[in-house]
Design a protein around this nucleic acid. Structure first.
Lengths: 199, 199
DNA sequence: GACCATATTCAACGCTGATGAATAAATCTC
DNA sequence: GAGATTTATTCATCAGCGTTGAATATGGTC
């Protein structure tokens, strides 16, 4: 069982192998449920090696996840078309992203287990979603409106995926669209002044 | 320093003292940052006593927090009045609760640190908010509509308090009302069939 | 006063993530 | 090619975590 000390023969990319094994384990058991030692064992490596390569458990998590999220084509699609229908297309894109992109859904599922995970999710929301929306809007108060939109979208993600309230998670996609579309439209609405509240 | 073994003289309510000390520490250092041993030290008690009284760290957390949340009068106020203005009153109540109820805000602030904390928050949302809304609505699909409403409210809590996206947290109360009120109204709307999407 | 339930400390267990020293292979330098 | 340096790895160990079981002292009951 004991492997000899020192650098191994050849140039096996042990670091990459560790990251891959870690990725699987993180998906399966969540952040806290995945211990450094278990990753090491699964990769047939001493646990100290993980500290050596990734610095810390959080570092390992970051590197193991990083290269899989982002670059979803769903958003790109929403960016094409007129501003009028943008809200609806945007909502569609978000629903699609979480339905298709497995690592994203898994990331969300285990986010409440640790602050480190939530930080990754937060960065994703800000850079990947808020950033692109602001870019599309292009107005003077573009950032403001994008911010408001992300508030609504974040809400969707929270109640539906991240911390699913039992009944809330059961809403159909159609229901989600019906309920949140007005909110998204209001958020993206350039008229920043108060509007009459028509009950 | 050593205190003698066995039951102490008098009947000091050590359990309550522990809960109070724990509450302070949880607020100050968060869930993970507060170790059982440190609570024990602060309460001048052996750490095993905590397992004895509360069963586990999560149990300690639950009991330490429990008796302070809930029972907020803001919700009760929203329950009085006609159905037409309910959405707006409800939104108002939520904003008020998080502004006033210190432990609630703190609970939210440190929720991302651990799943245990999120579980407490989740229970609060379901029982204290979703439950009361359904009770007020009283219709045939009351639960459905309440669920939808909580989805929106949960969104507010998520982006504003729990995992504050830097720009999103900066929204004023007025902005929040403007953006989310339409969504809440849509959620509470009894006409469950699709409505025309007027851009 | 005997007895049992209760409250407490003590000592230990098996975990956790991390660090520093030893070691061996790969690579660079002359 | 030999020697020095850098890189990759294991090993032994650390301090800390939450939890458990045994020992012990007090309070209430008959």
């Amino acid at each position: 069982m004991n492997k000899s000390r020192g650098r191994p023969r050849g140039n096996p990319d042990t670091k990459a192998r560790i990251a891959e094994v870690a990725y699987d384990l993180f998906l399966k058991h969540g952040y806290r449920g995945t211990t450094v030692r278990r990753v090491a064992a699964a990769a047939e490596v001493d646990s100290a090696l993980i500290s050596y390569h990734f610095g810390s458990k959080q570092g390992l998590f970051g590197e193991a996840m990083q290269f899989r999220c982002g670059k979803s084509p769903a958003m790109a699609l929403a960016m094409q078309g007129d501003q009028a229908g943008f809200a609806d297309r945007l909502l569609e894109a978000v629903l699609e992203m979480w339905a298709d992109t497995e690592p994203l859904a898994e990331l969300t599922r285990m986010a409440p287990q640790d602050a480190d995970v939530l930080a990754v999710l937060q960065e994703f929301l800000e850079r990947e979603i808020l950033g692109r929306i602001a870019e599309f809007l292009r107005g003077p108060d573009a950032t403001d409106r994008a911010t408001a939109a992300v508030a609504v979208i974040g809400g969707l993600i929270f109640t539906r995926y991240l911390n699913p309230l039992r009944p809330a998670a059961a809403l159909s996609d159609a229901d989600v669209r019906r309920i949140l579309a007005p909110a998204l439209r209001a958020a993206l609405n350039p008229t920043r002044t108060r509007r009459p509240l028509s009950a």
